[in-house]
Design a protein around this nucleic acid. Structure first.
Lengths: 199, 199, 199, 199
DNA sequence: AATGAATGAGTATTCATTCAT
DNA sequence: AATGAATGAATACTCATTCAT
């Protein structure tokens, strides 16, 4: 009897279990909303016992936060890669890349974004303006301004302005019946961005 | 058989009771948040019995909706009055008036707005882009475009873009520590608006 | 159809409901112990809904305290009546009456006493020496001492000494198999009391 | 293939581990109470893994009992030594020694005694009258009676009476604010003992 | 129109105990 | 002998809603 019946290893690396739990939670939150999802459903979905949840998270709000961070990190990574593909001095291209990557990522994960950021009382209001993303845009705007690609007096304010505008349009798009192609939408938004920057 | 010492008439016009209840709810929502406020606290605050609440509203969400509508109606009224003070063909002035009125109203009632629109799972996502206000802005943009005051290809999209941008800047302002004067903020926002419209 | 079908008046005077709940709790605590008794069992036993419990008590510990107070009050009343039946200057008689009333009351309610005072972590250690009863005994001892019926240097200490002694004998008696008549036990205890007082 | 850096021998004699666990448990029970102490805290405090606890004890109640026994054994040893120092026929001295040793031991370990004997639902009511100690006192009283040092009709009853009295006074003393010297307290109690024995 | 006593569904969380290594 | 990841039973409490006066 050499081979162990290792079909169901009771114990898994913590990281893996955590992921299982997060995936299960994400799926359920998406399907039924956060409020309607019980911890028990999450653990059942991850094929572990209820108590195991508390080995990895302290509460429902805790998973939610982990989900938020995962969302943001992945989004930022997407944007960064797209923007970095452009030449360093092609500011127009970089900004357009920002728009395209953002539109794409948001439309793909919009429902998730909505659920984790809007469906529940966020711990702090600042969640409403997704900081890291805006920070990155602020840097981009400031960079372009230094290079005289466009003119911006207050990069932060303009970044908030543009990000919010972008975000609103995305939400509107998700809400309305008629679908628009990603490319088309990205184009429209870029155009507005450029105009706002006086280009 | 003398008359009872009817010092406090138990009964009031329905409309008045409703208002009492709404005011009590608004105060409590603002103070403690929606989730933490119980129906009993609302009725106590309105000086009526618990059951009375259900004579005027069907649930907590119901008052919340009434509060939302009251907020929007009052806001729209403010904007309308400010815009109508301008000459009919002074499109730049009308748009600036829209900004100023909106900034002012939002800053005044920002916490209320946040609580009723963001703190609770909104019944539908559309609550996120406050329709009537955007509708009004759409008309304004379309009007100006017809009069060649500015050029807009898709008034609705641009209205959503601008309103969201405006809203994001307001939220950011509420969140950050440093206060900026209303006039200054309205000015900044108007400037961005004008640029976005290619003026 | 004049007579109302008032068979089951939904609503009862608060005092009565409270009593119902306390009686139900007492019965269950006695039968199964405090820890094993759930709030739901208590309300079922009192023929009301679970929530009703919380209209009258704030927690299980809260009923327990009410039960303790009821026990003490009733016990003290018993003792007082028995002692007051004796002539005011018959100190020996009064002390013997104290013993007899106490033995009788304790043996009758011993299990209850045990459950409410010993089975659960009492909120404060002082519950262990039932204050009011000891206070009363202290007064009795001091009175007799003033009247030269006996000599006591520190009435409080002696009262604690005697009450604890009494209590221990009762518990021992409850625990052991062989039953002794109440009168016999009261006699033994009185004899020890008298001797301790140097009579 | 050198030997492992066996700095911390994973394995200890069972007896020692048991002691470690008991000491950890005692410290925690004293600090936070029995109910608030978890098995995990106990094992952490003893620097072993959770499972190890169950190699030495079957449950929390089981450690508690071990702690009780350790307390009683040590107490009895104290008393025995003190009493045996007196001449065999010095009954008054022996009884006074009993009092003194007992007062001293109890005051030293009163909190521990309280925690292990009173804070938790004792498995049986008899724990309340600490048997071995009372047994020893019973023998002492019977011995003195045989030697005509005092007169006692029912040594067991009187032992229970006196031990309980003693115990109550100790608890009262622990509870009250004002501290009394051990010697003083032992004196008072001895005096009451002697009087109860008709000396 | 108003009351307020009564209802009871709904769930997060803890922690003793097990057992595969 | 020791580990520690996994288990899952068990229960108090809140509060929106009803309905008999």
């Amino acid at each position: 009897m050499p081979s162990k019946p290792k079909l169901k290893p009771r114990t898994k690396p913590a990281e893996e279990r955590r992921e299982d739990l997060m995936n299960s939670a994400e799926r359920l939150f998406l399907e039924q909303g956060v409020g309607a999802t019980t911890i028990e459903q999450i653990t059942t979905g991850a094929d572990v016992a209820k108590g195991t949840f508390y080995l990895h998270f302290s509460s429902k709000e805790d998973v939610l936060e982990a989900l938020r961070n995962r969302f943001i990190a992945s989004l930022l990574e997407n944007i960064r890669q797209a923007v970095d593909k452009k030449k360093e001095d092609d500011w127009e291209g970089r900004l357009a890349a920002w728009c395209k990557a953002c539109v794409s990522a948001y439309l793909d994960a919009a429902r998730l974004h909505h659920v984790v950021f809007y469906e529940v009382p966020p711990p702090t209001r600042e969640g409403l303006t997704n900081n890291v993303i805006i920070d990155y845009l602020t840097d981009l705007l400031a960079g372009g301004a230094r290079a005289k690609a466009w003119s911006v007096t207050s990069p932060r304010l303009t970044a908030v302005f543009l990000f919010s505008a972008f975000h609103g349009v995305i939400v509107e798009e998700m809400t309305s019946e008629k679908r628009v192609s990603k490319a088309r939408l990205a184009g429209e938004i870029s155009a507005h961005f450029f105009r706002t920057l006086g280009m």
